[in-house]
Design a protein around this nucleic acid. Sequence first.
RNA 1: GGCCCGGUAGCUCAGCUGGAUAGAGCACCAGCCUUCUAAGCUGGGGGUCAUUGGUUCGAAUCCAAUCCGGGUCACCA
Length: 609
Amino acid sequence: MYFCAKDTYIMTIVTQIKLATEEAIKHIFPETDLESAVITINQTKPEFTGDYTIVLFPFVKLLKQKPDIIGKQIGGYLLDKTNLFSEFSIVSGFLNMGVRDEYWATFLLNHYNNTQYGVMPKGDKRVMVEYSSPNTNKPLHFGHLRNIFLGFAMAEVLKANGKQVIKGNLINDRGIHICKSMVAWMRYGNGATPEKNGQKGDHLVGDYYVKFNDIYKGEIAELKEKGMEEAQAEKEAPIMKEAQALLRQWEAGDKEVRSLWEMMNSWVYAGFDITYKRLGIDFDKMYYESNTYLLGKNIVEEGLQKGVLYKKEDGSVWVDLTEEGLDHKLLLRGDGTSVYITQDLGTAKLKYNDYKLDQSIYVIADEQNYHMQVLKQILKKLGEPCADGIYHLSYGMVELPTGKMKSREGTVVDADDMIDEMVSLAQQQTEQAGKTEGYTPQELTQLYETIGLGALKFYLLRVDPKKKMIFNPQESIDLHGFTATFIQYAHARICSILRKENLPLLPDNKHFQSFKLSLPISKAEKNLVLALEQYPFILEGAADEYNPSSLCNYSFLVAQLFNTFYDEHSIGKAENEEKKQLRLMMIVMTAMVLRNAMHLLGIRLPEKM
RNA sequence: GGCCCGGUAGCUCAGCUGGAUAGAGCACCAGCCUUCUAAGCUGGGGGUCAUUGGUUCGAAUCCAAUCCGGGUCACCA
């Protein structure tokens, strides 16, 4: 019992210790009924001997014994009755358990090339992760990148945890914003197209959006000079009136307006696709607001019938959420037209019906926390089955040292520019390090992309999503320390050793079948295996807490432990064949775990750098 | 003002379902390449975990109040 079996379902060592401890207590103190929650297992601090520590204080009151006595009995029982441990010691209320070296050796033999290590078998839960969801009037900026990387990573992490995941993208392709770009293009474009201008379509359309706002500002200033109030001027500016007229024409289905709209949107999509492709980002389902913006009205009608919603004298429809600790919220204007949240109600239901979703995750910035809360509560109140599955994966916005990014004011860090900068930084550093030998030009290009994009993604994913970020464009993103580069480098070092040993990245099961452990495992070796064993726990946590950043922290730790191990021990020229085999298994598994973890974040690891 | 989120080393952040002397990275200082990739390793300095009180054998972690920063409370999206 209590030995890791070769199986897809892995019981972590911590779980095994917990169960064994529970059993020990039940056996030694049959009178007590013990809640397993009071058993806390921690990794033993480096200054003490042992691998995992059982905290004894919680038992003191329960068992009415001194911690040392309890510890001695539990420790003794665990040593005798399981084959997990080789030793134990008690230091001031902490029971430090030393796990047998054979456990780690068996663990390595069983999992060193198990590419599914930590991955849960696919279940039947369906989850949609909606992310990116851009407007079609401007190119993507740095803030979108955080959203996109987070959404992609979350989707992949959930897949690895056995969920059936649909990656969704709800494109905001209609409304006043796109009409603004259209007006400016009609006025000042002279028939400009991405082809003619040699410009990415999203950038071209974005330029006209900025142009619109420049002109708009000018017109407001002019009107104010003539003595008009600011608020009035904002409404009366001719270019704004044109944009609004255009929106009305669009809604009326005007053919010319629609075809201009389609053309300009198609430019934007082509531009987005280039960026998504370069970033390795994909989607399973695109939703367009031009198709969904009228949804939701019938849900509101039903709600009215049921008496869940109420109508005011002017004909507007409202929901009372004061019982839920929220406010009254408008759902339909007096003229019967819908507001933003109305279509969100409809879209939530649409998604649910399209895929029979168990859960629907929205990756949206934290400025919409209230909105998302309201959305969920309304659906709940209306008795819509999609309500319970709604989860807002809220993340802090990316700001500049000077404050928020404003696309209207052109103070945004453009996503494509940022990508280019990171890739060229990767090139500079590679050249500086003199590591450009032995590649074809294509391979070098590929390598710079891998390093540059890796650094960018890692930078945006390594922080807890809910924390806001301040990005200083003056200071470029580092390629040392807590970075993707560090992890990539550890991986490349491992691959280099494997090449020298004529081993593939994943040697098959025959390679180490003659391995037998007879020598003690060193501290540096142990630290690394211990960390590798924890991967399933980390992966599960990333899903449960909706926080992929834990994979960054974990991978960095593993790479760090590998580097220390690598510095201390020779692998190719190990002391003897046994050590060599042990260490080869360790590095094979290290590289595999790093690859798997980073793969979930969309970060590639080169075999050479 | 109501509600929500954040405040940990000079800077960027882990740790937060309570457990041993609070950890990384950057920056700074001192070492380590005739040996598997030095994009690395080892060591050092640097802290009133915003403040105060409470719960507890034990609090950065839980509770309350206060201070600071941000978000939100639109017939905008």
